[in-house]
Write a protein that binds this DNA or RNA. Structure first.
Length: 717
DNA sequence: TACATTGCGATCCGT
DNA sequence: TCGCAATGTA
């Protein structure tokens, strides 16, 4: 039958075991996406399950869309109506329907981190903590940790022996009240609130737990406590959960993900079948072996035995470059070379890095060499100032209680309403227990307000009333146009200098187009749904993999993707592993998994580059090769010598002995091996180790102190 | 009281 | 490099 065609026996088992819980331990490239798609198709086509009964959770919205396409290709339109999406989008959907049971109005706003910080600043200043060492972001980070672990303010306050948390608990409590007053939810709320609903409202739980006879969850290793609880509750009746994941690819611990959800699946569902997918269809034998050598150094992991029938392929290439510019040039040159010599096309390549800041020099090199590229991530479209402003207007139209958005736009464009006037309005509203929006209708009652400021507030109030009146019944596209025009925002942009003005006006036009596109595509093209989508889109969702360009993204964004040729840039101590992880063994293991995820994205070719130094915000910093590279056995790796014109600037030196200048590319002579070149440099001081490539292709790793190397001033080659 | 300017500080990963 | 807070100016 075609629903099982081309699946190996393990995969078939994962697809056809539909009578109870299944844990699918899926190694990198083992075809888990196919398994999930086939399982859904099998449920619909062979078992006769209604699409209405299926809930499928994916890690990105993009993955959900692709899953839907694959299922449709297998069984056709009977797949329509499946609930498929990320935890956040599925939970938002549940809350729009059932939120009222928790006192959440369906027109709630979703606050992103910028909104959260603005709200938190207000709270800290109300508590007299504005000048304290506690930053809004730090408080929010602790609160987010609590929420994603389902820890309430009371729980947090009760945690013994932590005075810091006692203080945070008060802030947490105020923060929650403020969110409710604003009719707003943060990202963590989207998950916790349905959990709270299901725990306290048996009717609501029964309704959904009865409905979803089959639940599938991808990337289960990266679920957090709240998401785990959500799944546990929803599956409490039918117990038919199919969890797919790989503990070696858990890379979101820092965001509250808890890999024990995966490791303890069999404890939670003792009747579970466990299927291991260990045949890798993606990578060459060499890439697989090299990546296994690295991940096997982790202590906290399940042992697995991945294998492949793919060819041996080429060795992993390590390129030692001078600095970030040299790295960019190396990658761009190699892209050109492989396109010319091996017939690769632009979309075959991806460049992966640890931090978004690394994209800049990479872009410069690509632009300089005329290689088309797309960047995934960085500054999001919806985070641009003018777009956030427009969204704030739209939010205020939908949710009149949203004071964070209202504060954002009350003086944008300039209306002569400053901090003092806004402060008086805010104070009045807090006293009266009303929203800022309601306060605008009672301006005459506000104490200490001069007549001019009062009139300005009045004018802003009537603007909002007018926008509300005129937007009623209009299409999404026209509402956005209306707001841009009537608010004076477009006129304001025209007063800016030319370049700025044009770029930002274009962004607003792009947003109008986005609104039009949304209303064409969505089955429910409301302003609420549009704002929800805008809040929940991920950078990777917007990435077009068919576009004729090299992709640039972070290692995190690469999860779940694959490419014929992968470049991992910045394989250096401090980047991967990131310096913030040095002190913590668990975090270090996560860095290793991250590097592993990057390596296993590659199908045919894997390039790793490492720079001798980088120009940071404090000038030139010497860099050291990542310990992960060190763990790749030499038989799987080939070191590319750097070209002759690459030199480390003179200020770079080891602190070993006298100040010797060690450059990538520095010529050396050894009594036994003859002349060669430094192609890599690791460690500091007495630990300084050099990788030297000698004539005849011999590569030696040497402890510099004892190597008896002669560093040559003149290049003999 | 609002708005422009300068200077400083922080800068991982992201729903 | 960029965004924001303190400071200066209208």
């Amino acid at each position: 039958m075609h629903l099982l065609g081309n699946l190996n026996p393990r995969q078939q088992e994962a697809v056809t075991h539909v009578s109870g819980p299944v844990l699918v331990l899926a190694g990198a490239g083992s075809g888990k996406t196919r398994v999930l798609a086939h399982r859904i198709a099998y449920l619909l086509g062979a078992v006769g399950v209604s699409p209405y009964e299926i809930l499928a959770v994916t890690f990105t919205n993009k993955a959900a869309g692709e899953m839907a396409d694959r299922v449709r290709a297998l069984v056709g339109d009977i797949a329509a109506g499946i609930w498929m999406g990320t935890f956040h989008s599925i939970c938002a959907r549940i809350l729009r329907i059932e939120g009222r049971r928790l006192g959440i109005s369906p027109d709630f706003t979703i606050y992103d981190d910028r909104d959260q910080v603005l709200l938190m600043k207000q709270i800290l200043s109300d508590l007299g903590l504005a000048k304290s060492r506690l930053t809004p972001a730090a408080a929010l980070s602790r609160i987010s940790w609590a929420k994603s672990g389902l820890v309430s303010p009371e729980d947090l306050a009760g945690m013994v022996g932590n005075p810091y948390d006692r203080k945070i608990a008060d802030i947490y409590s105020d923060y929650e009240n403020a969110l409710r007053a604003n009719n707003a939810l943060d990202f963590d709320d989207l998950i916790c609130m349905p959990v709270r609903l299901f725990k306290h409202d048996q009717d609501a739980l029964t309704k959904f737990a009865m409905r979803f006879t089959h639940i599938l969850i991808d990337e289960y290793q990266d679920t957090n406590r709240a998401q785990y609880e959500f799944v546990r509750l929803l599956s409490s009746i039918h117990r038919s959960v199919c969890a797919v994941g790989d503990d070696d690819q858990s890379i979101y611990r820092w965001r509250g993900a808890d890999v024990t959800n995966l490791l303890n699946f069999e404890r939670d569902f003792p009747e579970a079948a466990v299927v291991r997918l260990e045949q890798c269809y993606r990578s060459t034998k060499t890439i697989l072996a090299a990546s296994q050598a690295i991940i096997q150094r982790n202590v906290e992991r399940k042992e697995k035995d991945l294998w492949t029938e793919n060819p041996v392929g080429r060795k992993v290439m390590l390129s030692a470059v001078r600095d970030e510019r040299g790295e960019g040039e190396f990658v761009a040159d190699m892209v050109n070379k492989l396109m010319e010599e091996e017939g690769k096309c632009l979309s075959d390549f991806v460049v992966l890095y640890r931090t978004n800041a690394q994209s800049r020099p990479m872009e410069d090199a690509f632009r300089g060499k005329g290689v088309p590229y797309v960047i995934v991530g960085g500054i999001k479209f919806y985070e641009r100032k003018e777009i956030k402003d427009m969204i704030a207007y739209l939010r205020v139209l939908v949710n009149t209680r949203d004071s964070v958005s209202l504060s954002r736009i009350i003086n944008v464009p300039h209306r002569g309403i400053g901090d003092v006037t806004l402060g008086r309005l805010r104070e009045f509203c807090t006293d009266q227990g009303i929203s800022l929006s309601d306060g605008l209708t009672r301006i005459s009652e506000i104490a200490g307000l001069n007549a001019a400021s009062g009139r300005k507030l009045e004018a802003f109030g009537s603007l909002l009333a007018k926008l509300r009146r005129e937007s009623a019944g209009k299409s999404l596209e026209n509402v956005i146009k209306l707001v841009a025009e009537e608010s004076g925002y477009l006129a304001y942009l025209r007063t800016l200098d030319k370049v700025e003005s044009i770029a930002r006006t274009e962004n607003i036009e792009e947003m109008v187009a986005g609104g039009y596109e949304f209303q064409e595509r969505s089955d429910e093209p409301t302003l609420e749904k549009f704002l929800e989508e805008v809040s929940l889109v991920m950078d990777i969702d917007l990435w077009d993999d068919r576009r004729d360009a090299v992709s640039l993204m972070t290692l995190h964004n690469a999860k779940g993707l694959e490419f014929p040729v992968v470049f991992i840039a910045g394989a250096e101590e401090g980047l991967v592993p990131h310096h913030t992880s040095f002190e913590d063994r668990a975090e270090m293991e996560e860095e290793r998994r991250l590097f592993y995820v990057g390596m296993t994205r590659a199908k045919e070719r894997l390039f790793i580059s490492t720079a001798a130094g980088r120009r940071g915000f404090r000038g030139w910093m010497p860099q050291v090769v990542s310990r992960f590279v060190e763990d790749i056995p030499e038989e799987f790796m080939e070191i590319l010598a750097s070209s002759e014109d690459r030199h480390v600037p003179d200020e770079t030196h080891s602190d070993w002995g006298e100040e010797k200048v060690i450059r990538i590319g520095t010529p050396v002579r050894h009594a036994e091996w003859g002349t060669g070149r430094v192609v890599g440099c690791e460690g500091y001081g007495k630990q300084l180790r050099l990788t030297v490539k000698f004539g005849g292709g011999r590569v030696k790793r040497l402890l510099a102190q004892y190597a008896n190397l002669e560093f040559l001033e003149e290049d003999p080659l």
